[in-house]
């Protein structure tokens, strides 16, 4: 099994799926000749030609709008938004049409497409290049929002997203693009969307995270498990919508304690929904209040301040310890 970075794993999934299925194509800005600004689509232009690795004119709205049309007529476009901060021009099309077409046409027209894009902080970039706005997309009925946290998950989940019969927003934590490698079994298997992944089983406390925060949280969990001899269960949410309430509830019913680590701003982030699920399904099992470690309700600052505005290792550690110690 090859050890790959997340960029390489996504690239591999695209190569394999375009080879397997002629209706799959990639489109976006700089995705063809240049291979994408993060090199995620590298080599696709050379291998599949400019008809299937499309360097589009510069218009996010039209990229997504034409992708919807392509999908309505038998293609499976994987459209790239160069940064999630530029993707909001896609919302009129996704919210107004992409997510509604199945309902509007009573299933006559469907939109099997993927909008993939890097998101999140940590790369010392300019304005609009660092935010986590998964809620915008997860809050639109009719489409799915997926966030992989590791190279392996990125590979299997992207295959699932492309094969899914409905629009999928696939958000890639750019901080994790090249941060670490992982063995990826390139077997072409799609993981099921809407399922969380239990990274590590435990009985004392459940920690839930996703995206770049998962990797950071995992390190804290490893350290605390050892230092405090605690049995911590770590869950990678993987799909923001439809959210895997069953896995969350089952884990919290077992541990009675839960900490959620979310890079996005505090108000109405996915953590709010997780807490509601716990309230609905596992409230009586709780032995401590559920804690969330999140960003803040401010505009993501430029990088001189950015690091302090995403959950720090210290904040994650303190939240877990306080929740473990709560009596």
């Amino acid at each position: 099994m090859p050890k790959l970075t997340m960029v390489q794993a996504i690239n591999l999934a695209l190569h394999q799926e375009m080879e397997r299925d002629e209706s799959v194509l990639v489109m976006g800005q700089d995705v063809g000749v240049n291979g994408g600004v993060f090199r995620v689509t590298d080599g696709l232009g050379d291998k599949f030609g400019s008809d299937r690795a499309i360097d589009a004119p510069l218009a996010e709205g039209a990229i997504i709008g034409t992708a919807i049309g392509m999908a309505m007529n038998g293609l499976k476009p994987v459209a790239e938004m160069q940064f999630s901060g530029f993707s909001y021009l896609s919302i009129p099309q996704l919210e107004g049409n992409g997510a509604r077409m199945r309902t509007r046409s009573r299933g006559q027209f469907t939109v099997p497409m993927v909008m993939r894009m890097p998101y999140g902080g940590g790369v010392r970039a300019l304005e609009h290049h660092s935010e986590s706005k998964e809620t915008y997309y997860a809050h639109t009925p009719g489409m799915k929002t997926v966030i992989p946290s590791t190279p392996k998950a990125a590979y299997h989940l992207l295959l699932a997203a492309i094969r899914d019969p409905d629009p999928v927003v696939f958000m890639e934590p750019k901080h994790s693009y090249r941060a670490f490698k992982e063995e990826v079994d390139d077997n072409g298997e799609a993981w099921e969307l809407g399922k969380a992944r239990t990274v590590q089983e435990g009985t004392d406390l459940t920690v839930i995270s996703w995206g770049a925060m998962l990797h950071r949280t995992e390190k804290v969990v490893e350290q605390l498990s050892e230092d405090r001899n605690a049995s911590i269960e770590l869950i990678d949410l993987q799909t923001i919508y439809p959210m895997d309430g069953a896995t969350i509830a089952k884990s919290v019913m077992k541990t009675g304690r839960c900490v959620i680590v979310q890079e996005a701003q505090k108000t109405l982030g996915p953590a709010s929904e997780i807490i509601s699920i716990i309230n609905d399904k596992a409230l009586m099992y709780l032995e401590a209040p559920v804690k969330r470690v999140t960003g803040y309700d401010v505009i993501m600052p430029y990088f001189a301040r950015e690091n302090q505005y995403v959950p720090t290792i210290g904040r994650i550690k303190r939240a877990i310890e306080e929740t473990l110690d709560f009596e």
Binding site: Y296, V298, P301, R305, Q308, R315
Partner: peptide, 26 residues
């Protein structure tokens, strides 16, 4: 470091000031 909380609104909002305090404590 807490300057981004200054410019989010023209008037002080409780939710923002509460988060500023949490931010400073952390």
């Amino acid at each position: 470091m807490d300057e981004p909380f200054d410019y989010i609104f023209g008037e002080k909002e409780e939710i923002i000031e509460e988060q500023r305090q949490e931010f400073l404590d952390d």
